[in-house]
Design a binder for these strands. Structure first.
Length: 574
RNA sequence: CGGGGCGUAGCUCAGCCUGGUAGAGCGCUAGCUUUGGGAGCUAGAUGUCGCACGUUCGAAUCGUGUCGCCCCGACCA
C-alpha cells in the first residue's frame, strides 16, 4: 500500500475534546473520527487494527470450540419484558418503533436472543454443551460516553454464551473461556490481569474481569502480590483484624461541637483519630430508611452494602429524611437511640470509647461502646477496600491500581433459561433449565487499551499482532528512479512473504515523514534514501528502538526475519 | 440526571469585559527555493462567530432560551 493512495489524516495538534492519551493518539494518527458523543467511525488504518483484534478473537473462540453466529441488533421490546430485564436496563436502551408502531429496542447485549434460540432448538442433553459467539455492534445509551472508544454508545463486542447440563459442567465452559481470554489478550500484546468482579446488571453468581492496567482506567482494583488475590474494588474484600481498643468503662456523654458537621472538624476539635469515630449514614434501601455504620476514616462500598441489605435500589437519604429519622441535621447522626434498623461494618465490632453523632444539632457523643449503647441489627463487611488493607488470603498489604475492563466472564446459572423457558431433557427424561455462562470482550476498547498501554511521547507503539501494517518504508527520494526501484523491490519481496507493508511515498521532507511514522507507530520502519544507497545499505528501525544498517542484498531477509522475531516475542503460538 | 467548563476557518486558539460588522499559527491551493526529525519566501482560497429570540441605529461581543461537545459522579465491554 502506498501512503499517497491511502487515507491517513494525521494531526500535529491534539484535538481539544480528547482527554486521555490513547484517545488523542487515535485521533491524531487518523484511526477514528467522532460523529457525535459516543459514536465513532473507523478510518482505514483504524479498521485494519480492529479487524486484527477481531481475527485473533475469532481464532481463539473457534479453538475453544465456540460457534460463530450473528444475531440482530434490533429486537422486539417484548422479548426483554419477558425476561424481566427491560425494567432493569431501560436507562441504557435505545427504543424505537417500527412502522406498525411495534416497540423495538437496539440490543445492549444478547442473552435474551440467544436463550430464545437455544430454547427453540435444543431439546436434549445430547446437544449440550454448546457455546455460541458473535462479533457484533451493541447499543447502549450510556449516561456518560467517555474517552473515545473506551465507553461508546455504539460499539463492537464479542459476546459468547455457553449452555450446559449442570453447574459442574458449566464450570468447564467457564474455564475454557477464561483460558481463551488469556490467550486472546496475550496475542494482542496486552498485559492483562484477571480480577474477581461483581456481576452487575447481567446477573449471575461468579465473574472475572480482564483488566488492562492503566492510570486512565475507569475501574479501581486491588491486588496482593503475595497471594495473587486481585479484585475489582466493587467486590474486593480484606481481612478484618479484631479491634483491641483500650477498655473504656465511662458512660457515653454529650459534648458540644458547634457547627461541626464533619468528622474532619470534630476529629480536629476533640483531638481524636477519625478511625475512632462511628460514621453514621442514612440510606434508603428500597425506600426503607436504614442507618449504616462504619469507621470514620472509611467509605461505603454501595455494591457490597446493597447485597448485605438484600435490596435492589439503594440511595443516600436526603437532608430532610435524615432529620426526620435522627432528629438532627446531617452531620450529627449516630446509632444511639435510633428507632430504624442499624447495620454496622465488621470493623466496628467491639468498638468502645468511640465518638459519634448525638442525633442532636451541634452535639456529639463520646465514650460510646457500640454494642452497649445501641442496638445493632447485624454486622457485615461493606467498607470500600483501600490500598494497604490486608489481603483476605495472605494478610499482606494490598495495593490499589486502575484498570480498563476489556473482557468479562460470568457464570449466569439458569436465570435466563428459566425466564425464557430454555430447557432440555436429561437421560432420565426429566426437564431442566440449561445452565448458562456469558463472556464479553470490547473489541474497540481492547484496541484502544493497547494504545493506552503501548505508546511513548512520539506516538503509538503497536504490538505487531494488531498493528495496521508490519512495516513502513519511508522513502527519502521519491523522484529518484533508482531509489524507487529498491523500494518497490523490497515491497514486493515482503508482500510475497506475507508481510504487510505501507510505503510513505509522499513528497514531503524526511523529518515530516519520520514524525508521522512515529505517530502512526508501525512496529518496523525501513528508511531508504540515496545517501544510504550510495553506501549500499538501507536502514532498519524498530519503533522506539535502535537503528541498524543493513546491506542492500540482505534487506529482504533481514526485514522479514525481524517481523517474525517480533511476532514470536508476543509469546503465544498461533 | 445533578455539578463544572466550552461552542469563532479543516485543527489549535485570540477577539467578547468596555457593541461599530472577524484575526493569528498550523493545514489547504499555486509558484520559487529547500530536502535525514513536523522548512522558507511570495501570492491566494476558506467563516450563516452553534441556533433562535430579544435589547440597540448597529450584536461574535449584552440578555433570555435552546442545541451540541468535554470534564467530575451513578452505569458498563
Amino acid at each position: 500500500m502506498r501512503w499517497s493512495d491511502y487515507f491517513i489524516p494525521t494531526m500535529k495538534e491534539t484535538p481539544q475534546d480528547a482527554e486521555i492519551i490513547s484517545h488523542q493518539l487515535m485521533l491524531r494518527a487518523g484511526l477514528i473520527r467522532k460523529l457525535s458523543s459516543g459514536l465513532y467511525s473507523y478510518l482505514p488504518l483504524g479498521l485494519r487494527s480492529l479487524k486484527k483484534v477481531e481475527q485473533i478473537i475469532r481464532e481463539e473462540m473457534n479453538r475453544a470450540g465456540a460457534l460463530e453466529v450473528l444475531m440482530p441488533a434490533m429486537q422486539p421490546r417484548e422479548l426483554w419484558e419477558r425476561s424481566g430485564r427491560y425494567e432493569k436496563m431501560v436507562d441504557v436502551m435505545f427504543n424505537l418503533k417500527d412502522k406498525n408502531k411495534r416497540d423495538m429496542v437496539l440490543g445492549p447485549t444478547h442473552e435474551e436472543v440467544i436463550t430464545e434460540i437455544a430454547g427453540r432448538d435444543i431439546h436434549s442433553y445430547r446437544q449440550l454443551p454448546i457455546n455460541f459467539y458473535q462479533i457484533q455492534t451493541k447499543f447502549r445509551d450510556e449516561i456518560r460516553p467517555r474517552f473515545g472508544l473506551m465507553r461508546a454508545r455504539e460499539f463492537i463486542m464479542k459476546d459468547a454464551y455457553s449452555f450446559d447440563v449442570s453447574w459442574e459442567a458449566a464450570d468447564g465452559s467457564y474455564q475454557a473461556m477464561y483460558d481463551a481470554y488469556e490467550r486472546i489478550f496475550k496475542r494482542c500484546g496486552l498485559t492483562v490481569m484477571a480480577v474477581e468482579a461483581d456481576s452487575g446488571a447481567i446477573g449471575g453468581s461468579q465473574s472475572h474481569e480482564f483488566m488492562v492496567l492503566a492510570e486512565a482506567g475507569e475501574d479501581g482494583i486491588v491486588i496482593c502480590e503475595e497471594s495473587g488475590y486481585a479484585a475489582n474494588l466493587e467486590r474486593a474484600e480484606a481481612r478484618i483484624p479484631p479491634r483491641n481498643d483500650p477498655a473504656d468503662s465511662m458512660a457515653a456523654e454529650e459534648v458540644e461541637t458547634p457547627g461541626m458537621g464533619t468528622i474532619k472538624a470534630v476529629s480536629k476539635f476533640l483531638e481524636q483519630d477519625p478511625e475512632r469515630f462511628i460514621k453514621t449514614l442514612i440510606y434508603l434501601a428500597d425506600g426503607q430508611a436504614v442507618a449504616v455504620l462504619l469507621p470514620g476514616d472509611r467509605d461505603v462500598n454501595e455494591v457490597k452494602l446493597a447485597k448485605v441489605l438484600a435490596c435492589t435500589k439503594l440511595e443516600m437519604a436526603g437532608a430532610e429524611k435524615v432529620e426526620e429519622v435522627t432528629g438532627a441535621p446531617p452531620g450529627f447522626a449516630g446509632p444511639v437511640g435510633l428507632s430504624i434498623d442499624v447495620v454496622a461494618d465488621l470493623r466496628l465490632k467491639d468498638i468502645q470509647g468511640a465518638i459519634t453523632g448525638a442525633n442532636v444539632r451541634d452535639r456529639h457523643l463520646r465514650h460510646v461502646h457500640l454494642e452497649r449503647d445501641a442496638t445493632v441489627k447485624s454486622f457485615a463487611d461493606f467498607c470500600l477496600v483501600r490500598s494497604g488493607d490486608p489481603c483476605p488470603r495472605s494478610g499482606h498489604a494490598m495495593i490499589e491500581k486502575r484498570g480498563v475492563e476489556v473482557g468479562h466472564v460470568f457464570k449466569l446459572g439458569s436465570v435466563y433459561s428459566e425466564a425464557l423457558n430454555a430447557t432440555f431433557v436429561d437421560e432420565a427424561g426429566d426437564q431442566h433449565p440449561m445452565v448458562m455462562g456469558c463472556y464479553g470482550i470490547g473489541v474497540g476498547r481492547t484496541m484502544q487499551a493497547a494504545i493506552e498501554q503501548c505508546h511513548d511521547k512520539d506516538g503509538i507503539r503497536w504490538p505487531i499482532s494488531i498493528a495496521p501494517f508490519h512495516v513502513e518504508i519511508v522513502t527519502l527520494d521519491t523522484t529518484d528512479e533508482a531509489c524507487m526501484e529498491v523500494v518497490n523491490n523490497l515491497f514486493s519481496g515482503l508482500e510475497a512473504k506475507g508481510v504487510e507493508v505501507i510505503i510513505d511515498d509522499r513528497e514531503e521532507r524526511p523529518g515530516f515523514k519520520f514524525k508521522d511514522a512515529d505517530l502512526v507507530g508501525i512496529p518496523l520502519r525501513v528508511t531508504i534514501g540515496n545517501k544510504g544507497l550510495a553506501k549500499g545499505q538501507i536502514e532498519l528501525k524498530v519503533r522506539g528502538g535502535d537503528t541498524v544498517f543493513v546491506p542492500l542484498d540482505e534487506a529482504l531477509s533481514t526485514v522479514a526475519a525481524k517481523v517474525s522475531e517480533l511476532q514470536e516475542a508476543i509469546g503465544v503460538e498461533c
